[in-house]
Simulated scan of single mutants.
Amino acid sequence: MVNIGLLGDISVGKTSILRLFVRYLKQGDIEKVKGGTKCSVVKADFSGEATVPGGEKEDALNEKETKTIHPNRIVFREDSTNKAHTIFAPGGDRARAVVKMGIITISRIATKIIAVFSLDRDLDPQFEFFNDVRFFPDKIYVCINKIDLVKGDKEKKLTEVKGKITEFFEARKIAITDTFITCGETIEGFADVETYNNQVAEMILEITTKN
């Protein structure tokens, strides 16, 4: 059994990544991606979400902007081996004591950590989040999310961001096992949406079924 901790600053897309993975499991798309295998949802708990009044998504497609207060969690099982795995996604608002406690707890109980970064925001405040995480393994995975929001040369942007992330963790003697580029939502009009949606499922399968 692998316990994954999805850690990252506010609004990097951790909850969206979880919800997308659940969709892949429930619709059977998990078998169609690279390294795919039949898996089933055991439990999906998004009760840690609280609606933000007047958030940016208010009234847009009847969606509501949410903030994660208590860690969200999904448990899924590999049908062929019956092995169960858990993915935890605590919130990113370190200023709230209850959220910070969730971050500390998950960072301690997770056997694998995925550090999630968003490409649509400056990296410095995102790095600050990880400066506050005291319990870190010596090897982690990195997820660079929201590739759909990059304007212009995506490869140039990714090279720059990957370099800064590697430098940040190397300075803390933390090695990056692998890096995944993702789009955690189904975005209309984004030509490569399926490729980067699939990367979410492939990332989680790679970490759980190969360990």
Rank of each mutant, 00 (worst) to 15 (best):
residue 125 P to L: 13
residue 125 P to H: 12
residue 126 Q to S: 08
residue 126 Q to I: 09
residue 126 Q to F: 07
residue 126 Q to D: 08
residue 126 Q to H: 13
residue 127 F to G: 07
residue 128 E to L: 00
residue 128 E to D: 10
residue 129 F to R: 05
residue 130 F to A: 11
residue 130 F to I: 03
residue 131 N to P: 06
residue 131 N to Q: 10
residue 132 D to M: 14
residue 132 D to R: 10
residue 132 D to E: 14
residue 133 V to D: 09
residue 134 R to P: 00
residue 135 F to M: 11
residue 135 F to Q: 13
residue 135 F to H: 15
residue 136 F to H: 04
residue 136 F to A: 09
residue 137 P to G: 14
residue 137 P to H: 10
residue 139 K to A: 15
residue 139 K to F: 15
residue 139 K to N: 12
residue 139 K to V: 13
residue 140 I to Q: 05
residue 140 I to V: 15
residue 140 I to S: 12
residue 141 Y to L: 07
residue 142 V to D: 03
residue 143 C to L: 03
residue 143 C to N: 14
residue 143 C to D: 11
residue 144 I to D: 12
residue 144 I to H: 14
residue 145 N to E: 06
residue 145 N to K: 07
residue 146 K to W: 08
residue 147 I to G: 09
residue 147 I to Q: 08
residue 147 I to H: 05
residue 147 I to R: 14
residue 150 V to E: 14
residue 151 K to E: 15
residue 151 K to F: 04
residue 152 G to N: 14
residue 152 G to F: 07
residue 152 G to Q: 13
residue 152 G to S: 14
residue 153 D to C: 11
residue 154 K to Y: 04
residue 154 K to M: 13
residue 154 K to C: 02
residue 155 E to N: 03
residue 156 K to Q: 11
residue 157 K to Y: 00
residue 157 K to A: 02
residue 157 K to I: 01
residue 158 L to A: 03
residue 158 L to S: 07
residue 159 T to Y: 01
residue 161 V to A: 04
residue 161 V to E: 00
residue 161 V to N: 01
residue 161 V to S: 01
residue 162 K to D: 02
residue 162 K to E: 12
residue 162 K to F: 02
residue 162 K to V: 01
residue 163 G to S: 05
residue 164 K to Y: 03
residue 164 K to F: 03
residue 164 K to G: 00
residue 164 K to W: 07
residue 165 I to K: 06
residue 166 T to M: 09
residue 167 E to Q: 08
residue 167 E to G: 03
residue 167 E to K: 09
residue 168 F to C: 09
residue 168 F to D: 14
residue 170 E to C: 01
residue 171 A to G: 07
residue 171 A to N: 12
residue 171 A to H: 01
residue 171 A to F: 03
residue 172 R to E: 11
residue 172 R to K: 15
residue 173 K to L: 11
residue 173 K to D: 13
residue 173 K to E: 10
residue 173 K to P: 01
residue 174 I to P: 01
residue 174 I to N: 02
residue 175 A to Q: 08
residue 176 I to F: 07
residue 176 I to Y: 06
residue 177 T to I: 07
residue 177 T to E: 13
residue 178 D to G: 05
residue 178 D to R: 03
residue 179 T to A: 00
residue 179 T to C: 05
residue 180 F to Y: 09
residue 180 F to N: 00
residue 180 F to P: 04
residue 181 I to D: 00
residue 183 C to G: 08
residue 183 C to I: 12
residue 183 C to E: 13
residue 184 G to L: 01
residue 185 E to M: 09
residue 185 E to R: 05
residue 186 T to M: 05
residue 187 I to F: 09
residue 187 I to C: 05
residue 187 I to D: 03
residue 187 I to P: 12
residue 188 E to P: 08
residue 188 E to D: 14
residue 189 G to T: 09
residue 190 F to K: 06
residue 190 F to P: 04
residue 191 A to M: 11
residue 192 D to P: 01
residue 192 D to K: 15
residue 192 D to S: 12
residue 193 V to M: 13
residue 193 V to L: 10
residue 194 E to M: 06
residue 195 T to R: 10
residue 196 Y to C: 10
residue 196 Y to H: 10
residue 197 N to Q: 12
residue 198 N to K: 07
residue 198 N to A: 00
residue 198 N to D: 15
residue 198 N to V: 11
residue 199 Q to S: 14
residue 199 Q to F: 02
